[in-house]
Amino acid sequence: MNFERFAWWLFWFSFGLIILILFYGLTILFITSTSVELAFILGLISSLLMANKLLFGYGSIANLLDNVISLNEIKEEHKDKIKENVNKRFIPLEQIEKFSFATLISIALKDLDYYRYAYYSVYMLLVVITILAKFNLLGEFVLGKYIEGVFWGATITTFFVWGLEQLAKVSFTEFLNLNLSEENK
């Protein structure tokens, strides 16, 4: 027991140290960054804020499905988690209780579509502006290289959004292929 406590203490200490070093490094990076890197970081942060709902939505669904697939059964806690997501819609609670796990997940995936389309349209607008600036179609445009930095920052977030969305959908297909039965259906 004593050794275990010591190991935990060591773990938290090193974890805190790593976080501290990370913050220190990020601060140094932010202070010493050139204007181009600053544009990149700002684009990354702002697009992360915009895609926040999508990232957490698809991430939680993929995580939940991964749990269900690895356990090979649908537990009550899994259903409760997805109910929280769907509850925010204007569906009566009694009706939600009747839905199966797969239905709840497809409703949650559908709900995220609005955010996904909004995010992708803003991103496409940014792509068009970047291409115009890159090929000097906006005239002598001084801000061109900064817009490109914002574009690269947003591209990373878009990649995460796309990857998590695909992962959630692939997991959903795999879950459907398992043909799991629910107890209280």
Partner: peptide
């Protein structure tokens, strides 16, 4: 598409994005 294929496609896209950002 299964997870393995998704993993490879994702890695390739990540490499290309990293290349682009680094180059920029």
């Amino acid at each position: 598409m299964n997870r393995v294929i998704l993993f490879f496609i994702t890695s390739l896209i990540a490499l290309m994005i990293g290349w682009g950002v680094g180059g920029y």
